[in-house]
Design a protein around this nucleic acid. Sequence first.
DNA 1: ATCCCCATGTAATTTGTTACATGATTGA
DNA 2: TCAATCATGTAACAAATTACATGGGGAT
Lengths: 180, 180
Amino acid sequence: MEVKTVCLGMLTDGPASGYDLKKQFESTFGHFYSAGYGSIYPALSSLAENGFVTCEHIPQDGKPDRKVYEITSFGRTCLLNLLDDPEPGHKIRSDFLATMWFAHLMTNDQVEAVLDSLVSKIEFQHKLITDIQATYAHEWPAGKCFVAGFGKTMAAAIKKYVEDNRHMLADDVAQKTAAG
Amino acid sequence: MEVKTVCLGMLTDGPASGYDLKKQFESTFGHFYSAGYGSIYPALSSLAENGFVTCEHIPQDGKPDRKVYEITSFGRTCLLNLLDDPEPGHKIRSDFLATMWFAHLMTNDQVEAVLDSLVSKIEFQHKLITDIQATYAHEWPAGKCFVAGFGKTMAAAIKKYVEDNRHMLADDVAQKTAAG
DNA sequence: ATCCCCATGTAATTTGTTACATGATTGA
DNA sequence: TCAATCATGTAACAAATTACATGGGGAT
């Protein structure tokens, strides 16, 4: 699913600016989808050009005009078609796991540092989702609750797996050292 | 981490062709990193051009020459540097979760179909890792065991989460129907 | 017959990332 | 005074995906 489609979907919750959408990409979508301004702004322009959304320019003092986008009924219809894929992807691109695959080529300290970094990122992610849930979950439809719960469950599973199994890696390095 | 680096790393297990590496991307790397021929062949050419690997052309009858690549000691040194990043990424790009985020815009049947598709993909992935473990785990260093275990644990956690929580989504659609 | 496996590669296209460019307001 | 927040956008670049192009051998 491209950034365009996600932006269009986000606008079903009400009108918003590119800046607003970026915040949503960082918060609620942070654990499964990312997009920067360089993708969002062109996506919104393109959506507006093609009549999926309308754009209202709101002048502000000292800042560029705030451009608030609103989904059109045409946009809504198209969104439903775009969401219709019965087999949406779920892809992991993990440099972390790729690195661990080659752990035997690294020093114990390097491996430990990588593991620590992952755990702290995952803890941050878990906390972020928890905070967002506390604020918004009461007004969310089931799908959003499902997604947030998914993120927390994965974060918890990753943390537990790493903590339960990181000793394997240390042991392996120790053996290398003993053998070498 | 780019495809080039992963290919270089794979070659530390011994000489291999692009075709061989592709199989590895589909099997052991399947759950966390993907690459097609369109990325792999150019990556190997580039590695050879820059002296990270050597290439032996093995003539075959009826088929194109098999090109077997072997890592050089220079390539090995560079690989260690490339693996040195203490904060490797771990990114999810989930059209599945994005779709579920908008579940309230979809019909119950659509949501169910998406969920079924994910579960069957995840089951396939879990089985694939299990089969590979059965064949290779005894000769694997700890890092590879860690990565395979990670994949299985995630697959199991996803399956359980979806099965335990999919009723939420059905209920939500039922409410929509009752309300509309 | 037909399909899958073997085996390589290029080129066009799509997509996204990063760096650049600007600049006022607000709170610590 | 310094960092963060607000607010937009373009252009260059990097990277990967997809489609195209070829073709024999072996199994069912």
